[in-house]
Amino acid sequence: DWEDIVRFLRKLFELGEEVVIGDWHNHHREEIKRLIEWLEKHF
């Protein structure tokens, strides 16, 4: 279910905002944000 995936990604992203998950999070933050925005537009 796409909504569950979007919710999971958003939760992960919000957690990442508070607890910076090292370089991985910083590197992928923009991609995650773009992916969430893309999914919201399409689903």
Rank of each mutant, 00 (worst) to 15 (best):
L39N: 00
D4G: 07
D23R: 03
G22D: 07
H25P: 13
I32G: 01
L39Y: 05
E3L: 11
D1S: 11
E31F: 15
H42L: 15
G16I: 15
V20W: 12
L12K: 00
E14G: 12
V6W: 15
E37I: 11
H25S: 03
K11S: 05
H27R: 05
L39H: 01
F8G: 01
V20N: 06
V6C: 13
H27C: 12
W24D: 07
H28Y: 14
E18P: 07
I21G: 08
V19A: 07
F8A: 04
I5A: 02
H25N: 12
I36E: 01
I21Y: 02
L9T: 00
I36N: 01
W2I: 05
R34G: 03
H28N: 04
L39F: 09
E3R: 12
N26C: 14
D23F: 13
N26I: 09
W2H: 01
W24A: 08
V20Q: 06
K41N: 05
V6E: 03
R34I: 09
L12H: 01
L15F: 12
I5V: 06
V20M: 10
E40I: 15
W38A: 05
E31T: 13
E40L: 15
F13M: 05
F43H: 03
G16N: 05
H28V: 15
R34S: 08
F43Q: 03
V19H: 08
I21L: 10
R29T: 08
E30K: 10
L35W: 05
H27G: 06
E3Q: 11
E14Y: 06
R34Q: 09
R34E: 05
W2A: 01
V6S: 02
E3P: 08
E40N: 13
K41H: 11
E3I: 08
E17I: 15
R7A: 06
V19K: 05
K41I: 07
N26G: 08
W38H: 03
L12E: 00
R10D: 01
E18R: 11
R29V: 10
W38V: 03
R34C: 09
L12T: 00
F43A: 07
D1F: 15
E3W: 14
E18L: 14
W2D: 02
L15T: 03
G22M: 06
F13R: 02
W38E: 05
H27D: 09
I36Y: 06
H42M: 13
E31S: 12
L15G: 02
W2T: 01
I21C: 14
R7W: 04
F43E: 02
E3D: 11
G22N: 07
D4V: 12
R10H: 04
D23H: 05
R34D: 03
E30A: 10
R29L: 14
D23N: 10
K41E: 06
E14F: 07
K41S: 08
W38L: 06
V19W: 08
L12Q: 00
E40H: 14
W38N: 02
E31P: 03
D4W: 15
L12Y: 03
I36W: 10
E30D: 09
V20S: 07
L9Q: 00
I32M: 04
H25D: 11
N26R: 08
E17Y: 15
W24N: 08
L9A: 01
D23E: 05
G16E: 05
L15W: 06
K33N: 04
D23I: 11
D4H: 12
E37Y: 11
E31R: 10
W24M: 09
V6H: 07
H42E: 06
G16C: 14
F43N: 02
G22W: 07
K33M: 12
F43M: 04
L15Y: 05
H42S: 09
H42K: 13
D1L: 15
F43R: 03
L39M: 03
V19T: 08
E3Y: 10
D1Y: 14
E37H: 07
E17K: 14
H42W: 15
L39A: 04
H27F: 14
F43S: 02
L12G: 00
E3M: 12
W2R: 01
W2V: 02
L35A: 04
E18Q: 14
I32C: 14
N26V: 05
K33F: 12
L12N: 00
K11P: 00
L12I: 08
E14R: 10
R29H: 10
K41T: 13
L9S: 00
H25C: 14
D1V: 13
D23L: 10
G16Y: 15
L9C: 04
E31Y: 14
H25R: 05
K33A: 10
N26P: 12
E31V: 12
K11C: 13
R29P: 05
D23P: 04
G22Q: 06
E37V: 10
L12S: 01
R7I: 04
W24Y: 07
R29E: 06
R29M: 08
H25G: 13
V6L: 13
I5P: 00
L9P: 00
D23A: 07
E31M: 14
L35Q: 01
I5Y: 04
E3H: 07
I32F: 12
R34T: 04
G16S: 11
E37G: 11
F8R: 03
G22I: 09
E3T: 11
E37P: 01
G16F: 15
E17Q: 14
F13Q: 02
V19L: 13
W24H: 06
D1R: 12
L15A: 04
K11E: 03
D4S: 13
H25I: 15
E14H: 07
K11F: 15
V6K: 08
K11Q: 09
L9R: 00
W38G: 02
R34A: 07
F43L: 10
G16A: 15
H25T: 05
R7H: 04
D4A: 12
R29W: 15
E31H: 11
W24T: 06
F13D: 00
H28S: 04
L39D: 00
K33P: 01
H27A: 11
F8E: 01
D23V: 05
L12V: 04
K41M: 09
E31N: 09
R10V: 04
W24S: 06
R10T: 07
I5R: 01
K11V: 07
G22A: 04
L35C: 11
H27I: 12
H27V: 08
V6Y: 13
K41W: 11
W24P: 04
E31W: 15
K11T: 07
R29Q: 09
L9N: 00
F43V: 06
I5D: 00
K33Q: 10
I36A: 03
L15E: 02
D4Y: 13
W2P: 01
K11A: 10
E3K: 08
V6Q: 03
L12P: 00
K33R: 13
E31I: 15
D23M: 07
I21D: 09
E3F: 10
H42N: 06
W38P: 00
W38F: 08
G22K: 07
D1M: 12
L35K: 00
F13P: 00
R34W: 11
D4T: 10
L9M: 02
I36K: 02
I36Q: 02
E30S: 05
K33H: 06
V20A: 08
H42D: 03
E14P: 03
V20P: 09
W24V: 06
G16P: 04
I21Q: 07
L35I: 06
I32Y: 09
E14D: 05
L15I: 07
E17T: 14
W38S: 04
F13L: 08
I5G: 01
F8H: 02
W2C: 14
K41A: 07
E40T: 14
E37L: 11
I36S: 02
E40S: 13
D23S: 06
V20L: 13
E14S: 07
H25Q: 11
E30P: 05
E30H: 09
L35T: 02
E18D: 09
D1E: 08
D1T: 13
H27P: 07
I32R: 02
E37T: 09
H28I: 15
H25W: 15
V6G: 02
W2K: 01
H42T: 08
N26S: 10
D4C: 13
L9Y: 02
L9K: 00
F43P: 02
E18A: 14
I32S: 01
N26L: 06
F8D: 01
R34L: 13
F13W: 12
H25K: 05
E37M: 12
G22V: 05
R7Q: 06
L15N: 02
V20I: 12
E14T: 06
F43W: 12
R29I: 12
F8Q: 02
E18G: 09
L35F: 14
F13K: 02
I21H: 12
H28R: 09
E40P: 01
H25M: 14
F43D: 03
H28P: 07
R7S: 05
K33V: 09
E18Y: 11
H28M: 14
E40G: 08
L12D: 00
V19S: 09
W38K: 03
E17V: 15
D23C: 14
L39S: 00
G16H: 12
L35Y: 02
D4N: 10
G16R: 04
I21V: 10
I5H: 01
G22R: 04
I5Q: 00
H27N: 10
E31D: 09
V19F: 04
H42G: 04
E40W: 15
G16Q: 05
